[in-house]
């Protein structure tokens, strides 16, 4: 845990409020980058929420990460419209560009994390990727190199 003080503040804001576990975890993740085991244990001690429940929620929702993430998040859309517009070749191009091998999602320099997402809702621009909050549409595998370069 890097930001114990900030985490304590967040706990203070939510403690005792019903239904607050998800926003609590969301905010802690925003400052920590991910939810480490120690962080979850600490949250459990401080809030009296059973650690199994915290872990259960953290593993249920795709938004929570249990491993450190790269500085930039690349979301490759795998929605229906993107799928029929060959999103697979876009994903492959991104992985090749970042030299990620099978099963890896984060580059060794921790600069990028690649994830597949269900739908970014920009179907008319398919295939689409999103880097941090910026969306790029009507992509071809060849276009990936230029786009990723901007974040290096």
């Amino acid at each position: 845990m890097k930001n114990k003080k900030a985490i304590d503040e967040i706990i203070g804001k939510y403690i005792g409020r019903k239904g607050s576990l998800i926003p609590l975890l969301q905010e802690v993740q925003t400052i920590e980058g991910y939810l480490a085991k120690d962080t979850m244990r600490y949250l459990s001690e401080k809030t009296d929420i059973n650690i199994a429940q915290i872990y259960g929620v953290a593993t249920f929702y795709t938004m929570f990460h249990l491993k450190p993430q790269g500085k930039h998040i690349i979301r490759v859309c795998k929605g229906t419209a993107c799928h029929v517009s060959d999103a697979n070749s876009i994903l492959k191009a991104v992985q090749n560009n970042l030299q990620l091998t099978d099963g890896e999602d984060t580059t060794t320099d921790k600069l990028f994390t690649v994830m597949e997402v269900a739908c970014l809702g920009c179907c008319s621009l398919a295939p689409v990727i999103m880097i941090n909050d910026n969306t790029y549409g009507k992509l071809t595998p060849e276009a990936i190199e230029e786009i990723v370069k901007k974040y290096n």
Partner: peptide, 20 residues
């Protein structure tokens, strides 16, 4: 927080309550 099943009304309510 990213779970398709939460579009189902009872699951959605569970999610608001802070559960899976």
């Amino acid at each position: 927080a990213g779970a398709f099943v939460c579009g189902e009304e009872t699951a959605l309510m569970g999610s608001i309550e802070g559960e899976r």
